[in-house]
C-alpha cells in the first residue's frame, strides 16, 4: 500500500491530507495537460516529492498516479488511532516529541489524537483500541488510601 506520510500523524493532519488527496483525485480527471503538473497545486511539496520518488517515470501516467493517490487515501483511512489524554494544552514542540515517542515505541503507522482532560491532573492516559491505560496523577489520587471510609 502506498504511503506518502510520516508513520505518526495527528488526526487533524490526516483529515487535511485526506481532503487534499480527494481534491487531487478530482483535479486529475477534470483538467487537461500533464497529470502530475495538475497535482502540484493541490498537494503539499512534501506529498508531491514523495509521490515523485515512488512513481519515478510513471509520474505522468494517469493510472499509476490514480492508484498511488487512492492507495495513500486508503492507508490514511486504515490507520488506527492512539488517544493521549493530557491535563494541559501541549505546544507544537511537545506534540512533535509525542509523535517521535510514538514512532519509536508505539504502533506505526497510526494517528495521534490528543484530548484535554483536567481529571488527568498530571501524566497521561493512553487510549488504544477502546482500552484505557492510565498513567495519570489523577488515578494515583483516586487510590489514595487515607480518605475516610464509609461506616
Amino acid at each position: 500500500m502506498t504511503t506518502l506520510y510520516a508513520p505518526v500523524m495527528s488526526v487533524h493532519e490526516a483529515q487535511a491530507a485526506t481532503r487534499r488527496l480527494q481534491q487531487a483525485g478530482k483535479t486529475l480527471h477534470q483538467a487537461h495537460g500533464k497529470p502530475a503538473s495538475r497535482l502540484a497545486s493541490v498537494l503539499t511539496e512534501v506529498e508531491y516529492q514523495q509521490l515523485k520518488t515512488q512513481l519515478g517515470d510513471s509520474l505522468d501516467s494517469m493510472k499509476p498516479l490514480e492508484q498511488a493517490l487512492n492507495g495513500a487515501l486508503a492507508e490514511l483511512e486504515k490507520r488506527p488511532r492512539v488517544l493521549l489524554e493530557l491535563a494541559f494544552e501541549p505546544t507544537h514542540t511537545f506534540i512533535a516529541e509525542l509523535k517521535a515517542w510514538l514512532t519509536k515505541h508505539g504502533p506505526t503507522p497510526c494517528l495521534l489524537e490528543l484530548k484535554m482532560n483536567p481529571g488527568v491532573v498530571g501524566g497521561v492516559i493512553v487510549g488504544w483500541h477502546g482500552k484505557r491505560f492510565d498513567y495519570s496523577v489523577g488515578a494515583k489520587l483516586n487510590t489514595y488510601d487515607e480518605f475516610p471510609e464509609v461506616s
Binding site: 493530557l86 494541559f88 497521561v124 491505560f133 498513567y135 496523577v137 483516586n142 489514595y144
Partner: peptide
C-alpha cells in the same frame, strides 16, 4: 476530597512540570 486535591494539584503545575510528568508516564508505559 479527591476532587479538591485534584484541582489543587492540577492548578499548581506549570507547563514544564506537566511535560515532565507526561515523559515519566510514557517511560512507565
Amino acid at each position: 476530597i479527591p476532587v479538591i486535591v485534584k484541582k489543587v494539584v492540577g492548578r499548581s503545575l506549570a507547563l514544564a512540570d506537566h511535560e515532565a510528568l507526561v515523559r515519566e508516564a510514557l517511560d512507565d508505559a
